[in-house]
């Protein structure tokens, strides 16, 4: 028995990937794991609920969107650009990390996570949120609600959500242009 495959090309973390023969029915998470060894996005529920598996979709207009890889087929991403958690930090020519992304740095400073399983999803979600705030700044009094609305679909089972929340709020307040007076 052979599994029907289809060629897939896309851009991941600024690098062109493919064309690779990928089974037609394969989900994106499996493709990242099994074909590219990008294991940072976590398989949690496999049903699109926990959001541990999300990656950033970099759209043509430059805006960002969060996509769940466990419930989205790999071929949906054909021709599209994504950023996984492995592509968030700045790296040198040898691939060594030279600086964490602001979101990653804030999560470390705030001791936001314990076991870390949900963290790639939170990094993705918070990165997309900050990008949205850059495009559409919100009033200071709306900020807490905006953070809750954007991130409350991410499930964390050990440290709770407070430290993630505080990290994102501090970063939003510290970064110029995200919050209106």
């Amino acid at each position: 028995m052979t599994i029907p495959t289809k060629q897939l090309s896309l851009t991941i973390n600024d690098k062109a990937v493919g064309p690779i023969d990928v089974p037609e029915t394969m989900m994106m998470q499996d493709f990242l794991y099994e074909y590219l060894n990008l294991t940072g996005s976590r398989m949690g529920c496999g049903q699109g609920i926990c959001h541990a598996c999300t990656v950033v979709l970099e759209k043509q207009d430059g805006s960002l969107e969060e996509m769940r890889t466990c419930i989205t087929g790999a071929h949906w991403f054909a021709g599209r650009k994504i950023r996984t958690v492995e592509g968030q930090a700045k790296r040198d020519a040898n691939g060594a990390i030279t600086a964490l992304s602001p979101v990653q740095q804030a999560f470390i400073e705030h001791f936001s996570f314990q076991c870390g399983y949900c963290t790639p999803g939170f990094v993705t979600g918070a990165t997309v949120l900050l990008d949205q705030l850059k495009r559409n700044p919100v009033k200071r009094e709306a900020l807490e609600q905006v953070i809750s609305d954007a991130l409350d679909r991410h499930i964390c089972r050990c440290t709770g959500y407070v430290r993630y929340f505080e990290a994102v709020r501090d970063l939003a307040l510290k970064t110029p242009g995200l919050v209106k007076a």
């Binding site: 037609e24 029915t25 989900m27 496999g46 049903q47 699109g48 466990c70 419930i71 989205t72 087929g73 071929h75 949906w76």
Partner: peptide, 11 residues
């Protein structure tokens, strides 16, 4: 079919 596999089939 492509859309179904992409966004429906996993659930």
């Amino acid at each position: 079919r492509a859309s179904y596999i992409a966004v429906c089939a996993s659930c």
